[in-house]
Simulated assay, not measured.
Amino acid sequence: MINALRAEHGLPDATEWPMQSFERFVYFILVRVAYEDPDFMELTEANIREGLLRAGYLEIEPGYRGVPA
């Protein structure tokens, strides 16, 4: 999912994940997705995509321009 999102914005495949956005992503997934949904069973691609976007994953990537390529 990370590389698909990166490709949409003209960025190369990821080789690292900055801790700044990783911590935000994990918080969103554990608290906002898993904890707040009493019927939670598994993550979806949509959950992961939303988590990446909410964590600001793209904004701190060199070369990110804010609009899909």
Rank of each mutant, 00 (worst) to 15 (best):
5 L>R: 06
42 E>I: 10
37 D>G: 01
25 F>P: 01
24 R>Q: 14
5 L>S: 01
41 M>K: 15
27 Y>E: 14
66 G>E: 04
26 V>R: 06
37 D>N: 07
15 T>V: 10
63 G>V: 00
14 A>E: 11
31 V>F: 11
22 F>W: 14
58 L>C: 12
38 P>E: 11
50 E>D: 10
9 H>T: 02
55 A>E: 01
50 E>A: 02
49 R>I: 06
19 M>L: 15
55 A>P: 03
4 A>I: 15
44 T>P: 05
29 I>H: 05
11 L>I: 06
19 M>E: 09
9 H>E: 00
11 L>T: 09
43 L>C: 03
56 G>P: 00
29 I>L: 15
24 R>T: 01
42 E>V: 08
18 P>F: 06
42 E>W: 08
28 F>M: 05
42 E>T: 02
6 R>D: 02
63 G>R: 13
40 F>R: 08
46 A>F: 08
51 G>M: 03
17 W>L: 15
43 L>V: 02
19 M>Y: 06
42 E>Q: 15
17 W>V: 12
54 R>F: 11
19 M>F: 07
10 G>D: 09
33 V>K: 15
23 E>R: 14
44 T>E: 14
61 E>P: 02
60 I>K: 09
32 R>M: 15
9 H>R: 07
10 G>N: 14
34 A>I: 08
20 Q>G: 05
58 L>K: 10
57 Y>N: 00
45 E>Q: 12
67 V>G: 03
5 L>D: 09
16 E>K: 13
65 R>D: 01
37 D>F: 02
1 M>A: 07
57 Y>W: 14
10 G>Q: 08
65 R>V: 11
5 L>V: 09
38 P>Q: 15
11 L>N: 07
57 Y>H: 07
51 G>C: 07
28 F>P: 03
3 N>E: 13
27 Y>T: 11
18 P>N: 12
20 Q>N: 04
57 Y>A: 12
62 P>H: 07
56 G>Y: 05
7 A>P: 02
15 T>F: 04
47 N>K: 06
29 I>P: 04
11 L>K: 10
31 V>I: 14
13 D>Q: 11
49 R>S: 03
47 N>C: 04
5 L>K: 12
48 I>H: 00
51 G>I: 03
30 L>A: 13
56 G>I: 12
25 F>N: 05
44 T>R: 15
